[in-house]
Design a protein around this nucleic acid. Sequence first.
DNA 1: CTGCATTAGGTTGTGCACAACTTAATCGAG
DNA 2: CTCGATTAAGTTGTGCACAACCTAATGCAG
Lengths: 142, 142
Amino acid sequence: MAVTDEMVCFSLYSAARATTQAYRALLEPWGLTYPQYLVLAILWMEGEQTIGSLGDAMQLDSGTLSPLVRRLEQAGYVVRARSSADERVVTVGLTDTGMALRTEVAPVHTRIAALAGMQDDDQRHRLIAELQQLTARLQHAH
Amino acid sequence: MAVTDEMVCFSLYSAARATTQAYRALLEPWGLTYPQYLVLAILWMEGEQTIGSLGDAMQLDSGTLSPLVRRLEQAGYVVRARSSADERVVTVGLTDTGMALRTEVAPVHTRIAALAGMQDDDQRHRLIAELQQLTARLQHAH
DNA sequence: CTGCATTAGGTTGTGCACAACTTAATCGAG
DNA sequence: CTCGATTAAGTTGTGCACAACCTAATGCAG
């Protein structure tokens, strides 16, 4: 029994890395990373976003999102544009190529959940709720 | 209700980042990161290790551990030495300074668990077991 | 209308995480 | 004993995560 097996933090750290590994394998044909997939998933479901709204959804700051979205743009999946109403705001929208990925790529998260043994809705929602509560507590702690 | 709130992967990703954030705050006085803390925790509990045994425990390869352990050495917490029995192997041991940290720093993971609302042993072990099972399933999937 | 505070996004620097590769030591079949 | 295979660790390059800082646009008190 290793030291780390007694730590919640380590099992989280480990599970998160196993998850992004699983995404890496399934997303490899499109050269997408897991955070890039998340941005596309948000765009597919909710339409055009700003860097700020992506940051709210993913809890990431512009220091992470700016280069990430730039790479998605270089790959031809999204376009960035300064908002005409407010020149500070950058909008991010899907290209036709990005839109076309949806059918094939969007279901990946469901396949990952199945691989993880999380195909049962109740069980999955219970785990999600528990993790969200844990996250909220840690965030409010400081 | 955001898109990402339906995804196990996102709640994991989010919880893992909240955890390392909490560690960052508590470890700031010693300039330690969460993975560095893990290495020290293993050394405190199990004594001298090799790069390979640390890699087994943390599921990391030498590409991550080599520079990480180098930084711990530069900070004066550990020493590296080539094994005389097998010159390929590098052993990692605590310095007196590293040993002395134990009293103050080792309890941090318990404090994090408390902040996360995971002070109850049964509840914590149930979550750890669930995450370990999920991790194992994802790792065996490929 | 002016000028300072606020806000949105970008840049820089550090440290993981990991793939792909290199180097050097050890092992082991023949 | 020899030499090809294996093993341990390190190096290089890419992408995230995040702190600290910068720039430019907007908002707003006076």
